[in-house]
């Protein structure tokens, strides 16, 4: 017995040179795979760009000189009529507020939906453990539908205005935040919940008093990040559908030359808002996650 065992080990210990060559062999193979992957990737990118170029109305190289034509035209006219700008900016503040309201309401509603969905879909916390896959698939489904699809269909039913955008963005937010919330809740400490269960707390009480206080900072941080994304989304939805600053921008663009001062005013307003919200949410997220 011991002889065999001894012989086996002595056979299986290769000389050092063999290890060295095996290592070099591995490196070579790794490099070859890496090189192949790179070639495939470059080929994909090149053929993709040439195909996209082929199916585009205007060519890339033809259009390149025009990239700055439109912005400079707009900026020149805006500069010429710079005296109008403060007034125009002020004029569009109400629709900016509408855009921000759409984003805020849909973030709130989406976060409320995500709260319940994520708690119901987290192992260890779920009210009905058997239904976890159901709630997970619900969140996947909500995440997969682009906002524009729901918004355009709802515009047909509900007419214009901000409500279709709110519903569309909240549904998507519910799915997206639900996934993140559930990842946070998975790491929650279960002891407070057990303690609450031992004194006869209901499921709702256990979640509200045992889980929410633990996960609140991370959830808030994700919520703020989502708010930032939703402001952009609500501006875009306004451009495609109706309501808010996006719609004003579309109208001003359709007017074309002569109203470019309006376009500049809206660009400026949108830019400043997005930067401001970006900064504020970054600051608060830092405070929430790192604690002051």
């Amino acid at each position: 017995m011991s002889d065999i065992a001894y012989r086996q080990t002595s056979d299986s210990v290769p000389p050092l040179t063999a290890t060295g060559s095996a290592y070099l062999e591995m490196v070579r193979r790794k490099r070859m795979y890496g090189g192949l992957l790179l070639v495939v990737f470059v080929a994909l990118m090149a053929s993709g760009f040439s195909l996209a170029e082929h199916r585009n109305a205007g060519g890339f190289l033809n259009g390149l000189p025009n990239v700055f034509a439109f912005p400079s035209e707009v900026l020149a006219e805006g500069w010429e009529k710079r005296a109008n700008l403060p007034g125009l900016i002020w004029e569009h503040v109400p629709s900016l507020i509408e855009t921000i309201n759409i984003a805020a309401v849909s973030t709130l509603l989406g976060a409320l939906m995500a709260m319940s969905l994520s708690l119901l879909a987290t192992r260890g916390l779920a009210r009905w453990p058997r239904a976890i896959p159901l709630f997970r698939r619900t969140m996947d489904g909500l995440r997969a539908i682009p906002e524009i699809v729901i918004a355009l269909v709802l515009i047909y039913i509900l007419g214009g205005g901000p409500i279709p955008a709110v519903i569309a963005i909240s549904l998507h937010t519910g799915g997206a935040l639900g996934k993140l919330f559930s990842e946070v809740a998975e790491n929650a400490d279960l002891k407070p919940i057990e303690g609450l269960a031992s004194v006869g707390a209901t499921w709702g009480q256990r979640m509200w008093l045992g889980v929410i206080p633990q996960v609140a900072p991370n959830w808030m941080s994700y919520g703020l990040l989502r708010f930032e994304i939703n402001v952009r989304a609500s501006a875009i939805l306004g451009f495609v559908g109706e309501g808010g600053i996006g719609h004003d921008l579309k109208l001003a663009m359709q007017w074309g030359q002569g109203r470019y001062d309006k376009v500049v005013a809206i660009f400026l307003l949108l830019f400043l808002t997005i930067v401001l919200i970006d900064r504020l949410s970054g600051y608060f997220r830092n405070r929430l996650v790192k604690g002051h």
Partner: peptide, 15 residues
């Protein structure tokens, strides 16, 4: 918006 002015409609503009 700026890019679609320069390159016209199509996938290249979107990309």
């Amino acid at each position: 918006i700026i890019l679609s002015r320069a390159f016209g409609p199509g996938p290249m503009t979107g990309a």
